[in-house]
């Protein structure tokens, strides 16, 4: 392969997005995930209010937005870790609202977490094996008879070792996951998610807390997922990374999708600039809000003073 040739997956993804209108809720030619009218409220706060969003199969889609935009809540809803108050969404045409988290994963929609959940008291290889689906030995009674699951376990181990090699974790195979660095844990979590052979990989801030040396390698792995035919949806703050790897960008602010488009176009969109800079999420939106925030700050100050006086 020529060094500068564009990988097949990228070409296909870019072709799919060619000439597509850059507006929120735009239709995609082959969506793997379709979201309609999803709402999540926490008391009076509407954390998520998404009218319509489609995720194109085989692409890398970034979900960006300022702090508190509802990205992670939205993520949690889609993967069954949180319930939606209203709305529905389909994955491969199947309704996923109300489906519990483990069933979502079994369907082929696997996620990682913002705060890495490498299981630190299991070894790296055990972490990987855990990721495999439909294991015969995971039934209590079948588990008691090793001959029923040994063969499958060996297959799983081979698959795990291959992935570990790809992710350059093979030297850590038998170490406890707790001994890995933050970046290596991110890699392990991603590799472990791939053990289940997902169709849609959802990464919640894959770059958070990863040192720059590992960033490139992580980026490479994410791009590679697309080459392997997987769809990637990820939440990220780092704009350089978003520009580098995503085919399509969805921007959320205050729970709503405010813009969509190719990475370069969307970042110059006035609404996006406003969301990030102009309308900072901490700034009061109304006179009452400002009043309330002032009261809060005062109450906090009073409480601290009182505490200090007591001490």
């Amino acid at each position: 392969m020529h060094a500068e040739s564009v990988p097949a997956g990228k070409t296909a993804a870019l072709k799919a997005f060619e000439g597509m209108a850059a507006e929120p809720g735009v239709k995609k030619p082959d969506p793997i995930l379709v979201v309609d009218n999803v709402v999540r409220r926490f008391g009076g706060l509407t954390a998520v209010n998404v009218n319509h969003v489609e995720i194109q199969r085989g692409s890398i889609t970034a979900l960006i937005g300022p702090n508190g935009a509802g990205k992670t809540t939205f993520f949690n809803q889609l993967t069954g870790f949180d319930t939606a108050d209203e709305g529905q969404w389909t994955f491969n045409g199947q309704n996923m609202n109300g489906v519990s988290a483990y069933k979502v994963a079994r369907q082929g929609m696997v996620r990682t977490f913002q705060l890495t959940k490498a299981l630190s008291k299991l070894t790296v290889i055990e972490n990987m094996r855990l990721g495999a689906q439909a294991q015969r030995g995971e039934n209590f009674f079948r588990g008691l008879i090793p001959s029923l699951w040994r063969g499958q376990e060996d297959e799983i181990t081979l698959q795990a070792e291959e992935l570990l090699e790809q992710f350059k974790l093979d030297a850590k195979r038998d170490d406890f996951a707790g001994s890995l660095s933050g970046g290596q844990r991110k890699l392990l979590e991603m590799a472990r998610a791939l053990m289940g052979k997902p169709e849609l990989v959802m990464l919640d801030e894959p770059m958070a807390g990863v040192n720059p040396a590992l960033t490139q390698s992580l980026l490479g792995h994410v791009k590679n997922l697309r080459e392997l035919g997987m769809t990637v949806l990820f939440v990220e703050h780092d704009m350089d990374m978003v520009r580098d790897i995503s085919d399509w960008v969805i921007v959320m602010a205050q729970g709503e999708v405010i813009a969509e488009g190719p990475p370069d176009g969307v970042m110059s969109d006035q609404r996006v600039v406003d969301a990030y800079l102009g309308a900072h999420h901490d700034a009061p939106l109304s006179a009452e809000e400002e009043e309330r925030q002032l009261h809060e700050a005062e109450a906090e100050l009073d409480a601290t003073l009182e505490k200090e006086v007591k001490e």
Partner: peptide, 26 residues
């Protein structure tokens, strides 16, 4: 025997972080 099996592995993983185990389809 049970703890040596994949079943036992799932239990030990749950002890540590149930959400991680859930996200892996268990």
């Amino acid at each position: 025997m049970a703890m040596k099996s994949p079943w036992g592995r799932v239990l030990k993983a749950i002890r540590e972080d149930e959400d991680a185990v859930r996200s892996l389809g268990k």
